[in-house]
C-alpha cells in the first residue's frame, strides 16, 4: 500500500515543496489558517512541527517560533486538532516533525496512533537516529504511517544503506552541517551526497535545512532532489507580522508562492 506521501511523489511528475510550520505558532487558530494558506499557495506537503522546549537541531528562527507556540499553550493535543481540522478539508499530505521526548512522554504507540487517527501521514523525530529508531519505526508501521528518517553529509555509506532500509515515505537529507536556519549558499558537498543517497535508495530524497530562496530550490532540483523542505524561511515570515494575522497569512503565502514557482 502506498501512503499519501508516496503517492504525492510518484504522482506529481515534478519535485515537491514541503512547507514547514510550527504547530500553534503564533496561535492555534492562526496556525490552521497558515497551513491552508501554504497549501493554496503551492505547498505539496505540510510539515507541522510539534514544538519542544529544547530543540537542539534547530537554529534561532525555529527556536523562537517554538517558544511562541509553547507560550500559546501548544500541546500534542493542539497538534492533533490542527491535523484533524486541516485533513477535514484537504487531501494534502501532512508530516509531523518533533523530538523524541514529546513522543516518549505520550507513549510511542499512542502518539503514532493519535497522529494517524487525526490524519497525519508521516512522522520524523529529529533526535532519533538509526540506533534509536526501532520503536518509532514499529509504531509507524502499526499505525500505517511513514517513518521519515534523516541522512546527512556525515552519514557513512554503510549507515546510509541501513537507514534507507528502515525509512519509508522519503529520506530527509540534512543539507547543511549545522542547525536549521537560512544560509547564503548551498553547501557544494550536498550535491555529491544527494547522488550517493539516490544510488542506495529508491525512496525520494528531499533536502532540508538552509533552503529558503527560489534560487536555492532550483539548485537542489538541478542536483537531482525529489523535493525540497523549507522551514526557517517560511517561519520567519510568521515572526515578521506577529500581531497581524492577515499580514502573517499574506507574508507566509508570498514566501510559499516564491518557492513553489521554482518547482513548476
Amino acid at each position: 500500500m502506498t501512503s499519501r506521501i508516496g503517492e504525492a511523489f510518484s504522482g506529481a511528475g515534478r519535485p515537491l515543496l514541503v512547507a514547514c510550520l510550527v504547530a500553534g505558532d503564533p496561535s492555534e487558530e492562526v496556525s490552521l489558517e497558515l497551513m491552508r494558506e501554504a497549501e493554496s499557495c503551492g505547498a505539496d506537503i505540510i510539515e507541522l512541527v510539534m514544538p519542544h522546549s529544547d530543540p537542539v537541531a534547530d537554529g534561532p528562527v525555529m527556536q523562537k517560533a517554538m517558544q511562541r507556540a509553547l507560550h500559546a499553550g501548544t500541546t500534542p493535543g493542539t497538534l492533533f486538532t490542527l491535523v484533524r481540522e486541516f485533513r477535514a478539508r484537504s487531501g494534502t499530505p501532512v508530516l509531523v516533525l518533533t523530538y523524541a521526548n514529546i513522543v516518549v512522554q505520550r507513549g510511542i504507540e499512542s502518539f503514532y496512533r493519535d497522529a494517524a487517527a487525526a490524519g497525519a501521514d508521516g512522522i520524523a523525530v529529529a533526535d532519533a537516529p538509526l540506533e534509536e529508531a526501532d520503536p518509532f519505526c514499529r509504531a509507524a508501521r502499526e499505525s500505517g504511517i511513514d517513518q521519515i528518517l534523516f541522512v546527512s553529509q556525515t552519514t557513512s555509506r554503510e549507515r546510509l544503506e541501513k537507514i534507507a532500509a528502515k525509512a519509508s515515505g522519503f529520506l530527509y537529507l540534512v543539507a547543511v552541517l549545522g542547525v536549521t536556519g537560512d544560509r547564503e549558499k548551498i553547501d557544494p558537498r550536498v550535491i555529491g551526497i544527494l547522488q550517493a543517497v539516490k544510488a542506495v535508495s529508491t525512496l525520494p530524497v528531499v533536502p532540508g535545512f538552509g533552503i529558503g530562496t527560489a534560487g536555492q530550490v532550483r539548485e537542489m532540483v538541478r542536483a537531482g532532489a525529489d523535493g525540497v523542505i523549507a522551514g526557517s524561511a517560511i517561519v520567519r515570515e510568521v515572526e515578521r507580522a506577529l500581531n497581524d494575522p492577515r499580514g502573517t497569512r499574506e507574508a507566509v503565502g508570498a514566501k510559499v508562492r516564491e518557492l513553489a514557482s521554482a518547482l513548476r
Binding site: 537516529p129 534509536e132 541522512v151 546527512s152 556525515t154 552519514t155 540534512v174 552541517l177
Partner: peptide, 10 residues
Amino acid sequence: GQFVPETLMA
C-alpha cells in the same frame, strides 16, 4: 542511548 541528530552520529 544516543538520542542525537543524525549529523552527530559519525
